[in-house]
Amino acid sequence: MDRESLKSIALKLEALDIQGTVEDVKRALNEKIAPFEVVQNGLSPGMDKIGEKYERKEYFLSELSLAAYIMKGAMELLGPRMKASRERSLGRFLVGTVKGDLHDIGKNLVSMMLTSAGFEVYDLGVDVPDEKFLQKAAEIKADFVGMSSLLTTTMPSMKSVIELLKNNGIREEVKIFVGGAVVTQSFADEIGADYYAKDAMECLRKARNSITKGK
């Protein structure tokens, strides 16, 4: 029964059961549940619960990192099969931490929440040169570009990336998200980003809303 296997995935992920989650994902695939279905109605609700527990301070970064690890294992099974049914993904989301900046814990959480919700996430890692954002966004035909910065000295790179996208004619093709501990809504407005989010949950909400609303 479909619903049961998906519910079980959500519960096992929420409980951070490493093996259990992966086994349930395998089982669901054997039951011929579509991979996208597994993400959207199994992993995603589990991850939402984990996010809530983090907000209530029942889970901490150690647990979130573990959740990311489990997600990665699950995506290794699901990813290859999802490529075939790409049209069902919520969109391609390119993320990275800007040049000179090594903080990635927050960005990784953002990636994880987006992946689990069904976005196709491309993570460029840390210390990403401006040109790399441009090149990758063009290559994958990104729908979203998310930049993270935790240093006041690296924030200006967010602006220069936006300029670069503009100058190369793809600014209007993407929705730009910015975030990180030192970034504010007013800074996002000033540099012409489309969205600012204070945390990964808000980022996910805004990304989901932006799809129904358009830009």
């Binding site: 951070l16 990192s65 573990l66 814990i105 990784n108």
Partner: peptide
Amino acid sequence: GHTEFLVDLTV
């Protein structure tokens, strides 16, 4: 690695 280390604590 920051995330890897946190994962190691459990795994």
